[in-house]
Design a protein around this nucleic acid. Structure first.
Lengths: 346, 346
DNA sequence: AAGAAAAATGTGCTCGAACACACCGTTTTA
DNA sequence: TAAAACGGTGTGTTCGAGCACATTTTTCTT
């Protein structure tokens, strides 16, 4: 039943040589109808699975996979991705795979394109990229396609037919999860949706989350709540946020659509004694610290590490084991509070 | 830097034959001090990592791993485990590994021991087991130890020095997570902790969860709450639970320590119109269905599938890649509500 | 029918680790 | 002194897939 057949076994059973079996298995032609039928008969009876170990031992082809992602120096948000990629490198170091990371400045489309050029120069077999800039992403994916380089994306979902595979999260749904939690904490009152980001690269990102968040309240017809959107920049939080709180005495909850919840929590703790519910994203150290202090109530874990890991590993397994690359992998939307946070930080 | 060295390379560099290098690498002796030093010099300079593919291709040794777990026929709780094991089988089918599942009747220690005997007869290299029965588990682990069979456990944590490795969840903490959620739903009132199980095999299990749950409320000194423990059997829920509700008009929340939340939800929906907060365990279909209906508020995901998968895969990787088996792997305590449930059911 | 071309088939080497075995030189033993 | 024992070393084979190349068989051509 679970006996493992080799090409040699098949050859013997069909009364031909292993070379002929090999040609049939790989459709290399040059096989007589008689031999073809004999071999197919055998193949239909037994359950042949090529030994992947032997195959990968033989193959001298080295697969090169490049990762195009923002430099964590500019935004620590990307740090877990580096670890995820490192995990993949460790796991596959025994195989003929080279995985390279190429950083770009997330503030600069120029840097994005330049790093892209550097990758093209390496002529990799596949690229995993964080498609931060919509227009430019479409452009470079077109280039990769022309060069026959396989592309996988992660973190940011880009609507385009040219993108065949994506690893990430359903941002709309994650907004809804945040809303459901907010609805649990608060009976009523005003809720602010705060978009805070140095640049506005994440615009689509944040809007999706807001859309999900609002949809929840609209759907449930929770008229005791009022929702306000607020856009802040890193530089003006300390001015604008306290002012906003004074102007809106009914404010009782804040949903932060980026990983910068700690900035809000920090400013808030200085500005007011009022208890305001905070829900944000990502288990970065500063956020977890405020979670432990009780100033942030929930964090939604986007699991960038696993996103990056899966982004790479699906590509590697495609080359090594001929596995299909799934069109979309949506990671679960992990709900984190002070009680379960420790199990997620790695 | 990342060049991969082979034994042949080392032999050449040290000016000896690959046989000698092999003897040094495996401490097989029969090597002159002079040759030993030459080879060690080379090994100190370069970073040799044996090619695991080649090693596993050569080795004809077939590793046999047996899993001892309750038959899902008796309790569907164990069904995801079977899938997790199947995943491991698929992943490692290319290697010389045989993974066998052996079921026992979770109601019967006799069946447990008998299945154990059947496994011993197979003389496996390692065993993964769900240690449902404390005394018997200690006993059979002793036997495995004497036979030199490696043992890994999952799902149930057993306090014993003879157990060297475990994959599961921190049940005390999961009780705390449940409590923190309950505290969010309810401002005050009576909360029932319901232990419901056909047999009482899970006694320690359930007590740990209760302990964690209670610890949260004690710690926070939430005197507006009162906690009551209730033990029910499958057969008497429909009688006892409605009676309990009438006797306790202040009851506003129930924490079910097993995967049987659906039984409570079902009985409850027939017995009363009162809105009672329900928190339970495990994403089995019936539970998810009540979650979607809004009758169950939160479920805690124990991820048995991954438990079983990791239990097996750590063993396999130990044999194939000489990886260490971690002493304890504690899976995250996933918080599930109606908004994020769909991402966890697989 | 002979020779050339084409088609079909088989052989043999490679990948890297592991290990059995053969070999050689020195020392020990009968 | 010859043979056995031993420490040390190198050679060769194996695992299964993949592919280049050699060899055989068939078909076509003149």
């Amino acid at each position: 039943m679970d006996k493992k057949y080799t090409i040699k076994d098949i050859a013997q059973m069909a009364g031909v040589s292993k070379g002929t079996v090999d040609r049939v298995l790989h459709n290399r032609g040059k096989v007589s109808p008689a031999a073809l039928e004999k071999i197919n008969e055998v193949l239909n009876v037994i359950d042949y699975e090529p030994n992947l170990i032997a195959r990968n031992l033989k193959s001298t082809k080295v697969y090169r996979i490049c990762v195009l992602l923002p430099d964590p120096v500019f935004d620590p948000y990307w740090l877990p991705c580096v670890n995820g990629i490192q995990d993949a490198i460790t796991e596959f170091k025994a195989y003929n795979v080279v995985i390279e990371t190429h950083y770009f400045n997330p503030e600069s489309t120029k840097s994005f394109l330049k790093t892209h050029e550097a990758i093209v120069a390496k002529s990799p077999d596949a690229v995993l990229l964080a498609p931060l800039f919509h227009k430019e992403t479409i452009e470079i994916i077109k280039q990769y396609e022309e060069l026959g380089i396989m592309v996988n994306t992660f973190n940011n979902q880009v609507e385009s037919s040219s993108i065949k595979s994506f690893v990430g999260q359903d941002l709309y749904k994650s907004g809804r999860v945040a809303a459901s939690l907010m609805n649990l904490i608060l009976p009523k009152g005003q809720i602010a949706i705060i978009h805070i980001d140095e640049s506005l690269k994440n615009a689509v990102h944040m809007q999706e989350k807001e859309r999900g968040f609002r949809s929840y309240f609209e759907e449930k017809d929770l008229s005791d709540f009022s929702l306000t959107t607020l856009k802040l920049k890193y530089t003006n939080i300390e001015n604008k946020l306290p002012a906003f709180i004074i102007e809106n005495p009914d404010l009782s909850g804040i949903f932060i659509t980026t990983s910068k919840a700690y900035q809000i929590a920090s400013t808030l703790s200085n500005a007011t004694d009022k208890k305001i519910a905070l829900i944000g994203y990502d288990l970065i150290d500063k956020n977890v610290s405020f979670l432990n202090q009780g100033l942030v109530h929930f964090l939604i874990h986007q699991n960038q590490k696993r996103q990056a890991y899966l982004g790479v590993s699906t590509l590697v397994e495609h080359f090594l084991f001929r596995k299909d690359i799934p069109e979309t992998i949506l990671l679960p939307i992990d709900i984190i509070n002070v009680e379960n946070a420790s199990f997620y930080v790695s």
